[in-house]
């Protein structure tokens, strides 16, 4: 589904990604772990099409297409979704208005009929309930005045409504209490299917107790330095990132 080859990216004249190789097949869950500043979020944002990051080398193919030829909205139309590490507040635009506009843009691009306000509300209510999102948050301005946990749950709620093919969660677990973490994990697990793929960008192993990844990648200083199964995350938790760094240096 997704193939990244030798990806280099920079921002503010600083190299951040220094040759990433990653292959994600349909049905797989990949965890990308790494210390602060390793480039995890940059990788997620490059996949979503954020233009403040300049790709200087490498290629990304998604479902056989060159991803760089697609605008951020076209990527969303093709099924890519990124849950933001820091969801943006949008005053004056209600959560339901925003999400219906998003869903209908995607449906239009796929040649499907748009949902009217009534039909959409029914879907939104059901999903909001499933993610323990207070219904009053639906009519409030997008993320405005939401708590940190509410913002993260709102991202997962959007993901559930938009039903992406490739979901990228950028530190969605950071700062969540255990109950909120379980809700996020349930949302991701519910999305798992043989024709979808999920990339979890995370700093902590804890999330992986609830979402069992097929692969764990360790990203340090803009490069994937180690790939393993879920046990790698546990080992990392016990021994710390310094251990990986040393292991790589001595290799």
């Amino acid at each position: 589904m997704l193939e990244i080859k030798n990806l280099h990216a920079r921002a503010d004249n600083k190299d951040i990604l220094r040759g990433i190789d990653l292959k994600v097949n349909a049905g797989e869950v990949h965890a990308i772990m790494g210390p602060n500043g390793s480039g995890k979020s940059t990788l997620a944002q490059v996949l979503a099409g954020r233009d403040v990051y300049k790709v200087t080398a490498g290629e990304i193919t998604y479902q056989g297409r060159n991803l760089f030829e697609l605008s951020p909205e076209e990527r969303a139309h093709q099924g890519i979704f990124m849950a933001f590490q820091y969801p943006v507040e949008i005053p004056g635009v209600s959560n339901v208005y925003f999400l219906r506009a998003a869903l209908n843009s995607i449906r239009r691009a796929r040649g499907l009929a748009e949902l009217d306000a009534m039909d959409f509300m029914a879907v939104a209510r059901e999903k909001a309930k499933a993610f323990g999102l207070d219904e009053s948050l639906l009519t409030r301005s997008v993320n405005q005045g939401f708590s940190g946990g509410e913002k993260k749950r709102n991202e997962v709620f959007q993901m559930a409504v938009l039903e992406p093919t490739l979901a990228i969660l950028d530190e969605t677990d950071s700062g969540l209490d255990i109950d909120a973490l379980k809700i996020v994990a349930d949302g991701v697990n519910a999305l798992r299917s043989p024709d979808r793929a999920i990339i979890l960008v995370t700093h902590y192993q804890r999330l992986l107790n609830y979402i069992i990844p097929d692969y764990v990648h360790i990203l340090i200083n803009g490069k994937i330095v180690k790939v393993g199964k879920k046990d790698l995350a546990l080992e990392l938790e016990q021994r710390g990132y310094a251990w990986v760094g040393e292991a790589v240096a001595s290799a």
Binding site: V88, I90, P91, A101
Partner: peptide, 30 residues
């Protein structure tokens, strides 16, 4: 217009022009 907010909307499938419109409208709606 906040570029980060424009990107947020685009990443959800809303095209750039519509995203700007939504944000400008939202600014006024307050």
């Amino acid at each position: 217009v906040d570029q980060e907010a424009v990107f947020y909307l685009r990443s959800r499938g809303i095209d750039e022009e519509a995203a700007r419109r939504v944000l400008i409208h939202g600014f006024a709606r307050e």
